[in-house]
Structures are given as structure tokens and as C-alpha cells.
């Protein structure tokens, strides 16, 4: 059985460590904050200028001056601090954030990432994504294994090379999809390795839906 969005987020939360400063992208990655283990201290950074991001507010307690990078209302914590956008990206670019979890349109076997533009169709801008993948030490992508097209066909998202405009080159360390988990040796020659399968999913099924080359090293 392929993993649900919640299960993918739960798996991504296993990459958290006590004391980490983490940036979560919009979409499935935001769900990761629901699975921070009890007793583990993790500070969430919001690139619009906040460290120590809290949960969504109760109705009636929304503060228009308190939003996350996806422009949703949030709350603060006792650990919260606020700062400017240049300070925020100084944190990102200066390598002070431990982990970035974000979504993707395409990931290549060498760790290239495309997640900001579909020429002619979707040209909204890259926001903070390029800075995050360039500056954060460890980048984990959480995405569906294949894209479902309007005509019902499926397109692989794990490719030998991205054909969409790149967000970054050699930036992705790990990919978590609904079918399993891959690591990528982004700086070396190790390539892409399948390390886990979702329950009931076979390696053959993953191979059929993956264009990228990978070796399997299942525990």
C-alpha cells in the first residue's frame, strides 16, 4: 500500500534530530510538524522572518501580522524571535539551518531539483526555494512518486535529468515518495540508492515508475 501524505510526512519527521533548526516548505512538508517526536526540541524557521513557529491559531485569535511563508496565519512560542528578510536568508545562506524539507516537480539522479516553473504554464516565481537548496546543509524532498496528467497517464518525477527549469544543481540528499525512500550522493559518484519501500510496495513497481537509475540497498 502506497503511503498517504500523512505517512510520508511521518517518515520525513524521522530525519529530525533534537536541537535541529528546520525549514518546512508548503504542501506535504508542513504536515511534518505534526510528527515531531515527544521530547524532541525542534525549532521551525519561516523564511519571511520568524524562528520558533507555532501551530495555527484558534478561530478568532488570528493575527494578520503573524503569518508563515505560505501566508497562513500561525502562532508564536516562548522560543520565538522575529527578524528581517535579509537576516532570515542570512540564516539560510550561511548554513545555519540544519534541514530543509520541501516538495518537487522533478528530482534527477544526481540530486538536481526542479520545483519552481513550468514554462508557458506555471510561472509564479521561485520564492525562497533556490536560497534554501543552495544554503541548507541537508535537503529532503517529499513528493508523489509520479505525476498524474490530465489525460490519466502518469509521468515519472525521478529522472535521469530534469527537463524543467532547475531550482538547484546537486542539492537533494533524500527523496521520500509514496512508494519509498531514496538517498542521493549529491556531491560524489554514489548516485541514487533505494533504501526503503512503503509496506506492500515491491522494488519492481518502483523500477517501473522511476526513470532515474538507482541501486537497491534494502535493509
Amino acid at each position: 500500500m502506497a503511503w498517504t501524505r500523512e505517512q510520508m510526512a511521518e517518515r520525513a519527521a524521522k530525519e529530525l534530530r533534537d536541537g535541529f533548526y528546520v525549514n518546512l516548505g508548503i504542501g506535504i512538508p508542513t504536515l511534518v510538524s505534526n510528527y515531531i517526536p515527544d521530547g524532541m526540541s525542534v525549532q521551525l524557521q519561516s523564511e519571511n522572518g520568524m524562528l520558533g513557529m507555532g501551530p495555527f491559531p484558534y478561530e478568532g485569535e488570528e493575527d494578520p501580522d503573524l503569518i508563515n511563508a505560505g501566508k497562513q496565519t500561525i502562532t508564536e512560542l516562548p522560543t520565538t524571535s522575529y527578524f528581517s528578510s535579509s537576516d532570515s536568508f542570512g540564516m539560510v545562506r550561511g548554513g545555519h539551518i540544519n534541514l530543509s524539507i520541501l516538495g518537487a516537480m522533478q528530482v534527477a539522479q544526481n540530486g538536481d531539483l526542479a520545483n519552481w516553473m513550468i514554462p508557458g504554464k506555471m510561472v509564479k516565481g521561485m520564492g525562497g526555494a533556490m536560497d534554501l537548496v543552495a544554503g541548507v546543509k541537508r535537503v529532503v524532498v517529499v513528493m508523489e512518486h509520479v505525476a498524474r496528467n490530465k489525460d490519466g497517464s502518469e509521468s515519472p518525477k525521478l529522472l535521469t535529468a530534469c527537463d524543467l527549469p532547475l531550482t538547484g544543481t546537486h542539492v537533494v540528499d533524500m527523496v521520500i515518495t509514496d512508494l519509498g525512500v531514496f538517498t542521493i550522493d549529491k556531491k560524489g559518484d554514489g548516485g541514487m540508492t533505494l533504501i526503503e519501500l512503503a509496506d506492500g510496495v515491491t522494488e519492481d513497481e518502483v523500477r517501473a515508475k522511476t526513470q532515474a537509475a538507482f541501486t537497491a540497498r534494502l535493509g
Binding site: 501551530p55 495555527f56 491559531p57 484558534y58 478561530e59 485569535e61 488570528e62 494578520p64 501580522d65 503569518i67 505560505g70 501566508k71 497562513q72 496565519t73 500561525i74
Partner: peptide, 9 residues
């Protein structure tokens, strides 16, 4: 003050 994505729990 406008809120773009009013999100609550």
C-alpha cells in the same frame, strides 16, 4: 489588516 490565508485549528 487583510489576511491572505486565514488558517485555524
Amino acid at each position: 489588516k487583510r489576511i491572505e490565508q486565514r488558517t485555524t485549528r
